[in-house]
């Protein structure tokens, strides 16, 4: 079966050990985690993991069930790109000189709808929010001017379907 990229979201209790349990479920199948983000959710006390992986549809279905099998996981979902709105943020550190020397950097920043977070005497930090291809694109454009440091966040995603976590849980006979 064909590999596709999926975004898996997991809603869980807020417990330190759970992160390992969750990543184990992917890694024991030798599935590389492209990105992983943890954060609070809209419900107090409920934690949210957003995991991006590439695998087959059949596998992601099995994985979601194995995630839900964890005692402290309330619910897990998988989505393909169509089902979600998602973003990543990237930061680029380049020398301030580069900006001063040529107008090109400024143009690149404008054209990519990126923004400058700070300008220090030696370096400046540019921020770009978008999909991986977009932040990568900016990376390629800035490369000739010398990127001192680069970092990209994991994906954050919101699902399009309107059903809320609480209604899923109600169906399962669980309450928050």
């Amino acid at each position: 079966m064909e590999q596709e990229q999926f975004t898996v979201t997991v809603f869980s209790e807020d417990n330190i050990g759970l992160l390992n349990r969750i990543t184990d479920i992917f890694t024991r199948r030798k599935i590389n985690i492209d990105s992983l983000t943890t954060s609070a959710s809209e419900t107090e006390g409920i934690f949210r993991f957003t995991v991006v992986i590439s695998t087959t549809l059949a596998n992601v279905k099995r994985i979601v069930k194995q995630l839900e099998k964890q005692v402290e996981v309330l619910k897990a979902f998988y989505y393909d790109e169509e089902d979600i709105i998602f973003q990543e943020v990237a930061l680029y550190k380049i020398s301030t000189q580069a900006l001063a020397q040529s107008k090109a950097v400024e143009k690149i920043i404008r054209a990519n709808y990126a923004r400058i977070l700070t300008v220090e005497p030696e370096f400046m930090v540019i921020e770009k929010t978008g999909h991986e291809s977009e932040t990568q694109d900016l990376f390629e454009q800035l490369k000739p001017y010398g990127i001192l440091s680069f970092v990209r966040s994991g994906r954050v995603a919101i699902a399009k379907p309107m059903k809320r976590l609480s209604s899923y849980l109600a169906e399962l006979g669980q309450t928050l």
């Binding site: 005692v71 996981v73 006979g173 669980q174 309450t175 928050l176």
Partner: peptide, 8 residues
Amino acid sequence: CEKIRSYR
């Protein structure tokens, strides 16, 4: 313990 909210 009679119930855990995350586990059915």
